[in-house]
Simulated scan of single mutants.
Amino acid sequence: MGISTTVAARGGGVAQTGSARRGTAPGWVLLAAALVLLACVASLAFGARPLSWATLVEAWTDFDPADGDHAVIASRVPRTVIGLLVGAALGLAGAAMQGVARNPLADPGLLGVNAGAALAVVAAMFVLGQSSLTSLVWFAVLGAGIAAVVVYAVASLGREGATPVKLALAGAALSAGLASLTNGVLVTSQETLDAFRFWQIGSVAGRSWGDVAPVVPLLAVGAVVTLGTGRALNGLALGDDLARGLGQKVALSRAVVALGVVLLCGAATAVAGPIAFVGLVVPHVGRALVGGDYRWVLPLSGLLGAALLVGADVAGRLVLPPSEVQAGVMTAVLGAPVFLWLVRRSRGVAL
């Protein structure tokens, strides 16, 4: 291990392939923020009902509740906000998961987080008859948290502790088991199946401000916790032994990252359902642009995740008018080719 790498780790960074990436990282973050703004404008302007740009500007400068076009734009605002929040949460959680597991194929489902949230939501619907988002979000976070704790406890068994490989294996096994239990509950209750199958697709359509309020505090706390782990993830990227040698508490670092991921994924899954590919693809794009320093990868992944999900939602409205393709389907359609391209450029996305 070279001296420069060790010094970079002590300073909270990871040695980059060149100074160009470090110097351009703020520019990429600003460009991603501009992309988010563009996606928001498109989300308000495009849909089953075509609106002119003049109408969009007028709705913001001189809103008239009696105007049908203005009412349509107003109804798209909470949908856009939820798309931003969920996309940012999944992108941020995906980057953190890939960093803590040192696995480029990891996503928020690696620790069984999404499967635990889904099972908890189904159980709340089936056993307790819950249907409101205010109550379901807490069940989703609880299920995600329990699943993460179980995976970490199983992976910690043995002398080596919770290594990345053991975390991945335990997470995959638990996810399969929880998915089987979820399906078992669904086949016994048609009512629960009807309520769950629309949520399972993954969508931000039909959401209101009442759906935003319950998840904002959890997403805010999760984002703050996860963004604060950039230096810790940089240390973990060097390997557990070297991280410990530099004075880092590896188990505590992983626990803090897991806490942030649980809050982000639990709240995002509760409000929008399990949406795939955002947490998997976005971090690869971020690392390809700014290198391996998680102090930049994390915020960039959050911004790119928000832009991807809102953009996918807009594309879903336009592809088969006047009907809509749900955002969870469109993220897979848009994300799969990008991910295949990134896999071919494995040097650019390696951890």
Results as ranks from 00 to 15, higher is better:
Gly302Ala: 15
Val310Tyr: 11
Leu320Thr: 12
Val310Glu: 10
Ser301Thr: 04
Leu320Tyr: 11
Ala307Thr: 01
Ala307Met: 12
Pro322Ser: 11
Gly302Trp: 04
Val310Ser: 13
Val319Asp: 07
Leu308Cys: 05
Gly311Phe: 11
Leu300Ser: 01
Leu300Cys: 03
Met330Ile: 15
Val325Leu: 15
Leu304Met: 11
Pro321Gln: 14
Gly316Val: 01
Leu304His: 00
Glu324Ser: 09
Gly328Leu: 07
Leu318Ser: 08
Leu309Pro: 00
Val325Cys: 10
Pro299Arg: 03
Ala307Asp: 03
Val319Leu: 15
Leu318Phe: 03
Gln326Trp: 06
Leu318Cys: 08
Leu320Phe: 07
Gly311Trp: 08
Gly305Phe: 09
Ala307Phe: 04
Gln326Phe: 13
Val329Ile: 15
Leu309Gly: 02
Ser301Tyr: 02
Ser323Gly: 08
Ser323Asn: 06
Gly311Gln: 10
Gly305Val: 09
Ser301Pro: 00
Val314Tyr: 10
Gly305Arg: 09
Gly302Gln: 03
Pro299Met: 06
Gln326His: 14
Glu324Arg: 04
Leu318Gln: 03
Gly328Thr: 06
Ala307Gln: 01
Pro321Asn: 11
Pro321Arg: 11
Val319Ile: 15
Leu309Asn: 02
Leu308Glu: 00
Gly305Trp: 08
Val310Gly: 13
Pro299Asn: 01
Ser301Phe: 12
Gly316Asn: 06
Leu318Ala: 08
Gly302Asn: 12
Pro322Leu: 13
Arg317Leu: 14
Ala312His: 09
Leu320Pro: 04
Leu320Gly: 01
Ala315Ser: 15
Asp313Thr: 12
Pro322Gln: 01
Val314Ala: 14
Ala312Arg: 00
Ser301Ala: 14
